[in-house]
């Protein structure tokens, strides 16, 4: 698959909704198309975060390993969602494990490539940051609600 053919796929992803076609073209220069088998590890905690993912199909689980409880699922994400923000924040290492639950198709965006383009074009950088921040905010809110244990005995 050539790099150019990813541009329309990228443009369709909700993460890129409303993005200038010129910017989509620039992003597509950093994108690659991947497929994960059910159960396949996508990211491992502590490893170098050299990309982020835009999920096109399937579902993934964000997990953390604890010696007492083993692998704990924190959240799942599916088609149309973005996964991975560690590429943006030093020291650029994954904070969680990510594992494919179903056969998962995703676009991977190369972090080094993106960071380079954002340094050159801060406007693009800001645009990406805003979109990533919206994902942060949504995940943070969802995590807070989970922490509240709203269906628990003391709610």
């Amino acid at each position: 698959m050539t790099v150019q053919s990813l541009e329309p796929i990228l443009a369709e992803h909700p993460f890129c909704e409303g993005l200038d076609p010129q910017d989509v073209r620039v992003l597509s220069g950093c994108a690659s198309n991947l497929v994960f088998r059910p159960g396949e590890m996508i990211c491992r905690e502590g490893e170098h975060a050299d990309r982020f993912y835009l999920i096109r199909e399937g579902r993934i689980a964000i997990e953390v390993y604890t010696p007492e409880r083993g692998q704990v699922m924190i959240q799942t994400a599916g088609a149309g969602e973005m996964v991975g923000w560690s590429w943006l924040v030093p020291p650029h290492r994954w904070r969680f494990d990510v594992r494919a639950l179903d056969t998962t198709r995703a676009l991977a965006l190369d972090a080094e490539c993106l960071r380079g383009k954002c340094e050159i074009d801060p406007r693009l950088g800001y645009e990406l940051l805003k979109r990533t921040a919206a994902v942060f905010a949504e995940r943070l809110l969802a995590t807070r609600l989970q922490l509240l244990d709203v269906y628990g005995d003391n709610s």
């Binding site: 083993g70 699922m73 959240q75 799942t76 599916g78 149309g80 989970q146």
Partner: peptide, 23 residues
């Protein structure tokens, strides 16, 4: 459907119910 917390044998969604709304 979704659950707030699950073990690894769970193949469904994990997260709050509001996350199911956009799609």
């Amino acid at each position: 459907s979704t659950v707030d917390a699950a073990g690894r044998d769970w193949t469904g969604n994990v997260g709050v119910v509001t996350r199911l709304i956009p799609r």
